[in-house]
Design a protein around this nucleic acid. Sequence first.
DNA 1: GTTTATGCAAATTCTTTGCAATACT
DNA 2: AGTATTGCAAAGAATTTGCATAAAC
Lengths: 132, 132
Amino acid sequence: MKTSLKILEKYNLVKTQARLDILDIFTEKSAALSEGEIEDSLCGSCDRATIYRTLNLFTLKGILHEIANGSTIRKYTLKKKPERHLHFECNLCGEIVCLTGISLPDYRLPEGFTEQEAHFLIKGICKACYEA
Amino acid sequence: MKTSLKILEKYNLVKTQARLDILDIFTEKSAALSEGEIEDSLCGSCDRATIYRTLNLFTLKGILHEIANGSTIRKYTLKKKPERHLHFECNLCGEIVCLTGISLPDYRLPEGFTEQEAHFLIKGICKACYEA
DNA sequence: GTTTATGCAAATTCTTTGCAATACT
DNA sequence: AGTATTGCAAAGAATTTGCATAAAC
């Protein structure tokens, strides 16, 4: 069965075309995506409001994960385990990719602080842009 | 001489009241600030557009540093050395503070990737909220 | 006196919401 | 059939911009 369908079933969500289409994009692309990029990929087959509502729903359910980037445009990726991993945002092309396979730096929070999520973002020049 | 005045001189910027006032707030407060919070602090003595223009100018000049949080509201702090340090955002009160004094062991980026900035954001419950 | 910054208002961009129409179970 | 989702349009929030006025050098 298709991955996207499986995800909707796992989370007990109504299976609609919009949700399947949006999940398809995320399972195909490894980079983080914004609402606008999804809208472009779907070529108008799905309304902007629906995309926003779907992104919010998926984030709430834990299917997607919102990247802490320095911009006002929200970007999302499929949520992966382990939760704590590095993201790399290219200052030239703007792509945000997950750097899996890189061990995270270790740190200790001060007394009294409790960690719930960690967002590690490295900004710089990605391999593709460097070689271009 | 006042710190704010020194900063403007160091960066060769025209010394205006708005810039001094905004810098004063940053030197007094340790938490990251948004345009809205600065506007409130200034009680209308400075226009919204001016605050935005000033924040952008200071960021461009390297006086301020934009925090990579996951929200649509931009927050800034005075730029400190070392550039790579942890920020902690409280999920209850929303405050973002710099966790200086926490050492970040090294990590290695994959071949071909060049680092220009690192943004490490831990989200959770801050000490003040935990104790309240 | 010239250059640069500010204030105001309007425009842009990103995101959310109300509501009737449609799709899903 | 009944509930949940979508599309449309309008509203909202954050940020930027044009232009005349005011402040800084």
